[in-house]
Amino acid sequence: MSEAEIKSLEAQFDAKIANDQKIEPKDWMPEKYRKTHIRQISQHAHSEIVGMLPEGNWITRAPSLRRKAALLAKVQDEAGHGLYLYSACETLGITREELYDQLHSGAAKYSSIFNYPTLTWADMGAIGWLVDGAAIINQVPLCSTSYGPYARAMVRVCKEESFHQRQGYEIMLSLCNGTDEQKEMAQDALNRWWWPSLMMLGPEDKDSVHTEQSMKWKLKRKTNDELRQQFIDQTVPQADILGLTIPDPDLKWNDEKGTYDFGAINWDEFWQVVKGHGPLNKKRLDDRRNAWNEGKWVRDAAMAYAEKQAQRKTEAATAV
């Protein structure tokens, strides 16, 4: 294809997206669009999968059968989210094995928040409330993103997320209505998860490299700073209902702007965790690799079984 032809295809492509038309797997797309989408969708899928680990840590120690059933269902949903997203990503011409390889080799990223430890039961409450809460804010705009398979996966994901946040908040509520010790546990969890949750919404706009292009492709509808402000504004009143204190002395309502002002975020910590030096980066990847390697015999057995069944079928057919 000549350069002029590609230019005209690109112009048509941009116009299509600007008109809110969707791009589907077999449509022509610029190479950069394909690559960017593979990167973002796979990162998103990896985050769902690695995100099961911090909560999986508490399934066997949930304080009641009700809590255990809910947590189990939530973690199972996250596995589902990972699967929807991997499938969407594969429509761009990359295999599942390649995607897993990228995760297991450390080449691909996942959300840095999952590199923090879950020390107490209250962390299950704080994660559902804050981490799923921040995820929802990120994900809702993606339901109308330009790539069809990604948008459809996000619609399914968003339908399921609201239960995640509500079950987390309910855990916090019970702890805050419990003994002093239980309430302290809830406050401690909020103290540890608050700042990583704010970081989860991404670097500040002035340091964010992809924003403009991502806006054009509707991979982003709002900037990181806008999303963060939205998260803070909706979460502070929720903390008030719990009777908990947001661990930010600079947090205060700004009447003029109609939003909360908040303190400086420790971006050094964020970049340290992104670069692999968070509290549990190594353990998370080791756990993923072990799960993959130790599950190999199961995948091999399933494949051998399928082949044997198919063979029996053809033998039975020819014997007649």
């Binding site: 699967l83 929807y84 499938s87 599942r96 995948r299 399933a302 079984y305 198919a310």
Partner: peptide, 10 residues
């Protein structure tokens, strides 16, 4: 949507 599986039953 789609998924990976070894055979129809799985």
């Amino acid at each position: 949507g789609s998924l990976h599986a070894e055979d129809a039953e799985m």
